[in-house]
């Protein structure tokens, strides 16, 4: 029967295509995951975009516009994938604007200095790369295809960020201090990014079996720490977690347990910038109402 056939396809490592039969739970989980990913790309454009008008050189300005443009482009690609799972794009955007669907914790925080842009591009995008890289083996074919391009472009973002990070780390005293301050402010949200340690649960097992989730939260966090902690310590900068150290015996990083209450609050939309950013998006959405009406009328006539 259909479920057995579906399980067989997934178990064999094959992928499921849009328009193909799938269990309702698989469709719902994929939609929730990909919609949140799309929302996060669209909202993820806002923090760095504040620095486009203030980028300090012509080349940094062009590169930052290109980088934020990629985030908007990723939202376009991801909403397109989520759409075929049963929710039109306008409805997903309206759910985001109404605060009814989530976006990643890291985009609920302020971006007070130019160094924040470097920290976001290196460490936030670096964290996202772990999750997105793993999901390239996702069982949902349209998602896996889109992630191939997204990961290629995210890799560019990380390299761009490393260049700014290195320039500040090797720059003047005030530049180094600005960078350390940004790292201090962003470390907790970045540790939150991967979510709490997975409790073994039937839900988790199904997600892993169906390859909607490919690695556990803590595997991804450890993968991130191994790659990115050196980028701080190699420049003589501090990781703002006194407990953080490499545990040779267990081949993993030990770290202070993040404050998961703050994480839950932020995800619910009570982060320092949650309301302000959603309000800003809503304001533009209202201002463009006349443009949407005009395009609808033009589309009808075409």
């Amino acid at each position: 029967d259909k479920l057995a056939n579906f399980e067989a396809i997934v178990a064999s490592g094959e992928r499921i295509e849009a328009g193909e039969w799938m269990p309702q739970q698989y469709r719902a989980e994929c939609l929730r995951l990909i919609q949140m990913h799309a929302n996060s790309e669209l909202m993820g454009a806002l923090p760095e975009r504040e620095w486009i008008p203030r980028a300090p050189t012509l080349r940094r300005k062009m590169a930052l516009v290109a980088k934020v443009q990629d985030e908007v482009g990723h939202a376009q690609l991801l909403y397109r994938v989520a759409e075929d799972l049963g929710k039109p794009r306008p409805q997903m955007i309206e759910e985001l604007l109404a605060g009814r669907s989530k976006f990643h914790n890291v985009f609920h925080y302020p971006v007070p200095t130019w160094a924040d842009v470097a920290v976001i591009q290196v460490f936030v995008d670096g964290a996202a790369m772990q999750t997105q890289g793993a999901l390239r083996s996702s069982s949902y074919a349209p998602y896996a295809r889109v992630l191939k391009r997204i990961c290629y472009e995210e890799d560019f973002h990380i390299r761009l960020g490393i260049d700014v990070h290195r320039t500040l780390a090797e720059g003047t005293g005030p530049q180094r201090a600005m960078l350390q301050d940004a790292i201090n402010r962003w470390w907790q949200p970045i540790m939150h990014f991967f979510g709490p340690r997975d409790q073994a649960s039937p839900h988790l097992q199904t997600m892993m079996r169906w390859r909607i989730k490919v690695k556990t939260n803590d595997e991804l966090r450890q993968q991130f720490l191994r790659q990115f902690v050196p980028l701080i310590t190699d420049y003589g900068l501090q990781v703002p977690d006194p407990q953080l150290r490499w545990n040779e015996a267990e081949q993993r990083y030990d770290y202070s347990e993040p404050d998961w209450e703050e994480f839950k609050r932020v995800i619910r939309g009570e982060g320092p910038k949650s309301a302000a950013r959603l309000a800003l998006r809503n304001e533009y959405w209202q201002r463009h109402q006349w443009v949407r009406e005009a395009l609808d009328a033009w589309g009808m006539a075409a």
């Binding site: 454009a45 486009i52 516009v65 443009q69 908007v72 939202a75 443009v291």
Partner: peptide, 16 residues
């Protein structure tokens, strides 16, 4: 300055 806020996502990318 329109990056992230154009009326539709595709035009946002194009104007950037």
């Amino acid at each position: 300055e329109w990056t992230g806020f154009a009326p539709d996502i595709e035009s946002d990318v194009a104007l950037s």
